[in-house]
């Protein structure tokens, strides 16, 4: 286990150096990430500037939900961005090399890219949390802080698992573009807002089918011990394990039908 983690870090580190080879890229990516996330905040501000609450959720509570998404995406981008390479890797037969190295192929795939834009997410997300907790109306206890940390990590697990699951579609779709996964990713972004604003179909889909709501809405509700969503929010770690298992299983099934290429 320790060895596995060490190797994973090694592989990520190598990617960091590889990415920094193109220095201009690094700056363009980082700046554009800040721009993209910043615009999200401006937008949030614009909405709440006109109304005090949405479906009973006050501004700073929605900010907390939003921050959960930003942080989950940040962690997933920083540490498991490689999932997005699957479409190309699988459909151009580039998985071959990975399969011939003595390290689990799934971990090699996940560590095959570093998304520096995730740093922008983390900075912004932590800033949002810091701002939110000063305005949200409740008292902090060590237990609640521990719960918050656990739920943030679990929320990232949900995002990473679903990301992997949707990107594994590459094994079946045979397209070198990850547009399917990208469309599901935008679906997941619906979870930036309290899901009660959506119609029933969307709510069921985002809770039970592709449970993106567990990367933000439910865990945020659990931290705030707010409303009926709180109990579901406490299940986030289990949902995270489930999502990661789904992703790993999809990858395993995908590998067995991997056709390399140019046979």
């Amino acid at each position: 286990m320790r060895r596995t983690i060490r190797l994973y870090r090694r592989l990520l580190g190598a990617q960091v150096r590889a990415t920094l080879e193109y220095e201009a890229d690094f700056w363009i990516m980082s700046l554009s990430a800040v721009l993209v996330q910043g615009i999200g905040v401006v937008f949030l501000w614009a909405i709440f500037e006109s109304i005090p609450e949405i479906n009973g959720w006050r501004f700073w509570e929605v900010v907390l939900i939003y921050a959960f998404v930003v942080i989950s995406e940040g962690l997933s981008t920083l540490f498991t961005q490689g999932a997005w390479t699957l479409a190309v890797t699988v459909n151009f037969g580039q998985l071959d090399a990975l399969l011939m190295r003595p390290f689990p192929p799934l971990l090699q795939v996940l560590s095959s890219e570093v998304g520096f834009n995730g740093l922008g997410n983390l900075v912004l997300g932590i800033g949002l949390v810091a701002a939110a907790v000063r305005h949200v109306d409740f008292t902090w206890s060590p237990g609640r802080i521990a719960l918050g940390v656990i739920l943030v990590i679990a929320a990232a697990g949900v995002k990473i698992g679903l990301n992997l699951l949707t990107n594994c579609a590459a094994f079946w779709l045979r397209s070198p573009y990850s547009m399917f996964a990208f469309s599901m990713h935008t679906f997941g972004e619906l979870a930036r807002f309290p899901i009660t604003i959506y119609g029933l179909g969307v709510r069921i889909a985002i809770t039970a089918v592709l449970p993106y709501a567990f990367m933000s809405y439910f865990p945020a509700a659990a931290v705030l011990s707010d409303g009926t969503a709180r109990l579901l929010g406490l299940l986030t770690p289990l949902v995270a394990i489930y999502c990661l298992w789904l992703g790993a299983t999809a990858f395993r099934l995908g590998l067995s039908r991997y056709e390399s290429s140019g046979h």
Partner: peptide, 27 residues
């Protein structure tokens, strides 16, 4: 047993590299 197999086997595909594309060979 992919991982264990990879410890005992070496493969060279003439048309495709197994090196990390963006890294120096040493790395």
């Amino acid at each position: 047993a992919r991982v264990e197999n990879a410890r005992r086997v070496g493969v060279v595909f003439g048309q495709r590299t197994q090196l990390w594309w963006d890294l120096p060979v040493r790395e």
